[in-house]
């Protein structure tokens, strides 16, 4: 389990990195935290001609509040996010999700940009990005574009980023004070990728639910926004019956695949179970 041969570049700027990607014309791969790419290389399941390592580009690692949201440089480590006061205050759902990403030594290296660009359907960050209706910024030879979460994820391990593009930034709207949130997840072993995960966000107005956001991990080839379930809550409020109805709805909205960790039936069942748990816990956190 040793990687195949490749060339290696550690550019200092995004422009340099883009030039390198251009030079290899799609045969190079970006290396971020390496926590997903390196295992693939060790198994020789990825065979890029070159790696363009983003770890020496300081401009890609930052957390900034701006306008109504938070901007994270793609190379911001999951560990930095875990301990960031800005994240804890402005996007607490992201902090909660981070605790579910592997383990501390994984989060030391793993990055927010890598996690999203990798687009593992069982990963937490794509679900959070989807639930919060965040965006990412991509830069390529032709310039910069902003991609909405809903448009980003194509299928397993595939985004609509082109091979010569770099994801430079993740933008998340700040969660208003009092917003309820929860990330519920089921994995067979602590720290493993989710069999099913549910990210939930609710904004309450008394007994009413102003906004509900639900997104899945592990329930299909991409994170699934459970819009029809959200609508039940936005219409009927956050009472027990509405939550049950939303959870039931959630099971109808997903089309999971089977693998050795769980069948499609079981995953669908879990989608309902965890939707309910996430909503109940999010309600408990919500004020307003």
């Amino acid at each position: 389990m040793k990687p195949p041969k490749f060339e290696y570049h550690a550019p200092r700027t995004v422009d340099e990195a883009l030039a390198l990607l251009g030079r290899y014309g799609g045969d190079a791969k970006v290396l971020a935290g390496g926590q997903s790419l390196m295992p693939l290389l060790n198994f020789r399941l990825a065979r890029p001609a070159a790696l363009v390592d983003l770890n020496r580009i300081p401009s890609l690692a930052f957390i900034e509040e701006s306008g109504g949201g938070v901007r994270l440089g793609a190379m911001t480590r999951q560990r930095t996010i875990e301990f960031s006061p800005v994240i804890a205050q402005r996007v607490p759902l992201l902090k909660e999700a981070t605790r579910w990403v592997g383990h501390l030594p994984i989060r030391t290296r793993g990055t927010v940009g890598g996690s999203i660009a990798h687009a593992d359907p069982s990963a937490e960050y794509p679900a959070v990005l989807t639930a919060l209706e965040g965006e990412v910024v991509a830069r390529g030879a032709k310039g910069e574009r902003v991609i909405k979460a809903a448009d980003l994820f194509q299928t397993y391990l595939t985004t609509n980023l082109t091979p010569d593009e770099i994801l430079t930034e993740v933008r998340l709207p700040a969660m208003a004070a009092g917003t309820g949130y929860a990330l519920e997840e089921f994995a067979r072993r602590h720290g493993d990728f989710a069999i099913i995960g549910i990210a939930a966000v609710v904004v309450r107005d008394g007994q009413r639910c102003k906004t509900a956001r639900l997104a899945t991990a592990g329930a299909g080839p991409v994170p699934v926004r459970l819009r029809a379930a959200e609508e039940i809550l936005e219409r009927d409020g956050l009472g027990e019956a509405a939550i049950d109805a939303a959870a039931r709805k959630a099971t109808e909205l997903v089309d999971p695949d089977s693998d050795i960790h769980g069948s499609a039936d079981y995953r669908r069942h879990l989608t309902g179970v965890l939707t309910k748990r996430a909503l109940v816990r999010a309600m408990g956190v919500a004020r307003g």
Binding site: F43, R188, R189, H190, G191, D192, F193, I260
Partner: peptide, 16 residues
């Protein structure tokens, strides 16, 4: 073999 990694062959961790 479908359980060919330690992701897929699940050995218990301290939490289990």
């Amino acid at each position: 073999l479908l359980s060919g990694t330690l992701m897929d062959y699940v050995v218990p961790s301290a939490c289990e």
